[in-house]
Design a protein around this nucleic acid. Structure first.
Lengths: 231, 231
DNA sequence: ACAAATAATGAATCATTATTCAATATTGAA
DNA sequence: TTCAATATTGAATAATGATTCATTATTTGT
């Protein structure tokens, strides 16, 4: 044998890997998915295109890792909030504020992660982001339900709903073409927070939870509503 | 001149157009985006690939129209509900039930429309779907706010949130790999409905709406929460 | 029936990028 | 210094599927 990885090389390899990840992240953050091409990433990391493939077997895998690390950061933030003690309501509010505020701050990246059209393989990987956030919220909600602070509800559904609500509300304001004023963003955030708080913490408004099932029980939900077209 | 479109031909052209739209719709409904390729659509419409381009200038345009018509149908349903009179709360509940129930019924199509990874151009077109639903909900919510039935809130934000909540909650159950039991679907729907109703109709829980702004006012939202990594 | 105009055809082309790989450079033990 | 192993390079390739277009078929007024 005549070659054996030395510490120095090992370090360089690790560094290359990091450079690639950072370059990838930077490019999406700046220009979204169109800029995040393998060749561009390689160049930004001062490597040849082919070299990237010695570290990541595909673009999808590379971005799976980028997304995982971004999610992890968000999760850490929310985790910090979740562990901060105090009433679940407060923690939920803080988590929503933290998430939306951070998204609005890192607009381009958040847009890419949440709403920007992208290739299917990457879209797939994006799910980890939503899921990760959802899981943390679920814990806070489950907490509140257990202590009786929140009304009875399925924390999994509620957490999904909160994630969806936050993200959908952000889509417009995050879009690169929307010239968002920093001014209004506080009101905007607090609007979202209030929505989520009401949704999770309000007691059942009436003791008739089956009221909403009227339509379901009515049979076909697709009755000709206005003599409209058929299927 | 020796040729002028006759009624008969005009009708055939219109029919071809319809066939294409229906074929496109059918293919997504059955197999999702992977099946919805131009060649397959043409074949399903008994036409040659190239012919499709005499009717639609691109795949994106074709699907823009398919999506618009599907959205229109949903909007009609919700519209029917919205016009049904009665308290806004009831109408909102009915709208959410109608939407989620219908989605669960036309699972594959709903999945393609809401969550399935797809090409960027089509993803773009998918927005009309969300937007269309959102606009109708917005009207119901604005109604409720005006009449004082709902607490003060920005109907645009609330509508986005409801759309997001419904759709995100549906993602899991709609996924083709999830073997959803018809049994549980009622509970599931009603869980979503209750979430949305609480969110929109509950009175502000406390007269301190700025409570949730703690984190915002605290300055950096990204304080090293656990001695964590840097940017 | 004929010809000009319009439609339809579908195999070939194009465009886009991720991915590969033969060639080259670097590394470290002997 | 040498050489086998490993790492890098980036131009060439591959794969996918939308789109084109030269050719063929239909249509209708004369």
């Amino acid at each position: 044998m005549a070659y054996r990885r030395s510490k120095r090389i090992e370090a360089k390899l690790a560094d290359n890997r990091t450079q690639i990840l950072q370059a990838a992240r930077r490019l999406v953050s700046e220009g979204g998915w169109p800029e995040a091409q393998m060749a561009a990433i390689a160049a930004a990391a001062n490597l040849a295109t082919g070299t990237v493939y010695r570290y990541f077997s595909s673009k999808a895998e590379l971005f799976a890792e980028v997304l995982a690390s971004v999610s992890q950061r968000e999760v850490d933030v929310i985790q910090g909030v979740a562990e901060s003690g105090g009433p679940a309501k407060q923690r939920l509010a803080d988590a929503v504020v933290a998430f939306t505020t951070r998204a609005l701050r890192g607009r381009r990246l958040a847009y890419a992660l949440i709403a920007e059209p992208c290739d299917p393989e990457i879209d797939q990987a994006r799910l980890v982001y939503r899921r990760a956030i959802g899981e943390k919220l679920q814990r806070i909600i489950a907490d509140g339900v257990t202590t009786g602070e929140f009304p009875a509800q399925d924390p999994r559904v509620a957490a999904s709903c909160v994630v969806g609500a936050m993200m959908e509300a952000l889509v417009g304001p995050l879009a690169p073409e929307s010239i968002q004023l920093k001014a209004g963003s506080q009101d905007f955030v607090s609007e979202i927070v209030r929505f989520c708080l009401r949704a999770v913490t309000a007691p059942e408004s009436r003791p008739r939870p089956d009221l909403a099932l009227r339509v379901l029980k009515g049979g076909r939900t697709k009755p000709s509503l206005k003599g409209g077209k058929r299927e």
